[in-house]
Design a protein around this nucleic acid. Sequence first.
DNA 1: GTGAAAGCGCTAACAT
DNA 2: ATGTTAGCGCTTTCAC
Lengths: 339, 339
Amino acid sequence: MSRPTIHDVARIAGVSLSTVDRVLNAREGVRRATQVRVTEVMQQLGYERNVAAANLARRRQYRLLFVLPAGGNSFMRGLEQEIAARAGAWEFTSIAVMTVPPFDDAALAGALLDIDPAQTDGVAVVATDSAAVRAALAALRDKGVAVVTLVSDLPSSRRQHFVGIDNVQAGRTAASLLGRFCRGRTGSIVMVAGSMLVRDHAERRLGFEQVLYQEYPEQHILPPLEGFDDQDIVAARLSELLAQTADVVGIYSLGAGTRGVARAMAQTRTDAPSVVVHELTPHSRQALLDGTFDAVIHQDPLREITAAVGLLQSLIGGEAIDADVARIGIEVYLRDNLP
Amino acid sequence: MSRPTIHDVARIAGVSLSTVDRVLNAREGVRRATQVRVTEVMQQLGYERNVAAANLARRRQYRLLFVLPAGGNSFMRGLEQEIAARAGAWEFTSIAVMTVPPFDDAALAGALLDIDPAQTDGVAVVATDSAAVRAALAALRDKGVAVVTLVSDLPSSRRQHFVGIDNVQAGRTAASLLGRFCRGRTGSIVMVAGSMLVRDHAERRLGFEQVLYQEYPEQHILPPLEGFDDQDIVAARLSELLAQTADVVGIYSLGAGTRGVARAMAQTRTDAPSVVVHELTPHSRQALLDGTFDAVIHQDPLREITAAVGLLQSLIGGEAIDADVARIGIEVYLRDNLP
DNA sequence: GTGAAAGCGCTAACAT
DNA sequence: ATGTTAGCGCTTTCAC
């Protein structure tokens, strides 16, 4: 009646528990014939291994480390808090967090090289794109540490997986929204970026321009404003631009420093431009509620953490990995579907 | 070094394992003083119970049953498939699915009354709103079966929880989108419903009208079309209406039968109305890709299943429940952020 | 090659 | 009111 166990399998196959275990875990030291017999009994019984019991007996320990940029980036701070809040939630898993100066690839590479493989089994890192970081990741891997990139990827490095959204698609989504929101009004579209040197920002811009050029050719895209994810710089530059350019109908903020966008918007005349920004934070939420922003494109930090942890566990345990969990959805929020 | 266990707690507190267990599970038969001492040691050691081991020892079995409407509703069929696919994924849990004729509260009530409490510990049901169903749920509860409603709620019944989206907010979200999409074009807005007798449809309509009346008063909302979640009826009635009404600028389909909307749209002239529908299915996905639909409002079936299973497990086990997991997000999809 | 036996961290009788 | 003991389903020495 209840689920069959290895005891049942062993009894029916006429072998011992150890042999069933060997077959189950594809260990060697089992005659071909026995192997087949045991496998058949398992199939016939519909045996499914009890993972909890297995982990219990194994006494596995996954020691994971998250490496995030420091600084005032609300999204990153939210991510950090979420990790801290959930750190105790995973069985057999301890989680540490480390922050490094943002936009500083030397610092990141140094920090990665300092990781002690005797203390850490797996690392999830928000990558900065540089040769030094690539080399540091490779070194980590050589030491036997599992590595996934988080939020911002580093393709063609030796990271084993990327956990995050498809940023080109995110940019396209922003354009689909903003294009529709601006229908009937023709004019200039402003893009506010952090820095074009950061991979995810570059990808978002690419996707955004793809769709806007092709499907809303009546709109005029201005060259991107660089705000370095700093709200003061963003506010200053955007205010200036809005003062000079009368026909701005839409704004897409594809990095952080979103508070600066809200501040600049506060000074605009009636019939304000439509605004789409990235990442749901207390501030973007507020701006959505008071009508300053029209939509927020978001990635769920908790999902990303969960995916990273699960992936690292599988990687460390040498199990098959489910690539699906790593594909994080691009979420769209308006005032009314806020969580 | 490794996580402290009840052995450590017992040793340090100078009591036996049983006593620690009693404290841990708030069982009676422990002197106040011992209780305090043990608790203190736990805190001091940062003890966290190993849930897997606990479940293993308990040999708990959760036998759950999902009750869904039968019929051609793509969303429900998707839900059913997802349950089947994940049925083996939960430890200590077996999951069965049962379908009943749709929109037939007598059939649903009968099916619920037939559930054998000796075979079933918990039920998740897509509710139809009626006194008979309410009574059936109450009878189930009296038999000791845990009950949650799924997707469509039955408030003021004895169901212990609802797992699903906030449908008023979903309607508001649709209006926010459609209102923005139609800016600059003024005319009629069509609502296609399944039946106003179904609770979630009524709620969506409410939310939709709230926002549209208040924030887009220039648009004219037509009385809702009833399509009974049947694509043929929807196609026929919507085609007819579109032929008669030249100034339709937006369409909101708040129930199933969405394929009928796509079919009716295929016959419209250029400058087609903007369309927002519910539930991501192979068909609505296709319509999004080919530009027939502008946005799809969705609820994630897998999340709902996971939440229902988790909630029922807690309810059956008499544990504290985390109401947060039951709040399913209202997802918005455009062509470019499709999963 | 295969098996017996001792645990993993916790719970559930059954003592005392 | 508290302790002892035998498992839960699986893994892991260590024998044979």
